[in-house]
């Protein structure tokens, strides 16, 4: 599952110490709600991303819990304080063993 998930993340490459930086993350995922019937009238089983976690050099700075009401290809934008140079890692986990990780380096 993870191999075919395409994630796009947008983090500034450089920042000043203490600066509040915007982070945007988008991942391709159907986010099937589990409430929609298919052509034979049966409900399509739920298949969503349940959790998104962003860590900054291993420290969790942001976490989001998603429900079926989050749109397909979940997008989330938030901010964090640029404290030190290092890596910002984002992890998505969901139904059917879905797991995707994306990392980006930042210079402070």
């Amino acid at each position: 599952m993870a191999a075919d998930a395409r994630a796009l993340i947008n983090v500034p490459q450089k920042a000043k110490r203490g600066e509040v930086i915007p982070i945007k993350a988008l991942i391709s995922h159907v986010m099937e709600t589990g409430f929609r019937p298919n052509s034979t009238g049966q409900l399509i089983p739920r298949d969503i991303i349940k959790e998104f976690v962003c860590t900054y050099n291993g420290t969790e700075v942001f976490r989001a819990e998603f429900f079926p009401a989050v749109s397909a290809n979940p997008f989330v934008s938030f901010t964090t304080v640029a404290t030190e140079s290092g890596t910002i890692t984002m992890t998505w986990t969901g139904d059917n063993g879905f797991h995707a990780t994306e990392s980006v380096a930042i210079t402070v």
């Binding site: 930086i21 942001f62 749109s71």
Partner: peptide, 14 residues
């Protein structure tokens, strides 16, 4: 948390 700097979030919903 305090590491967020601001509480400003955007996403897309159904």
């Amino acid at each position: 948390g305090p590491r967020a700097g601001t509480a400003n979030i955007q996403t897309r919903m159904r």
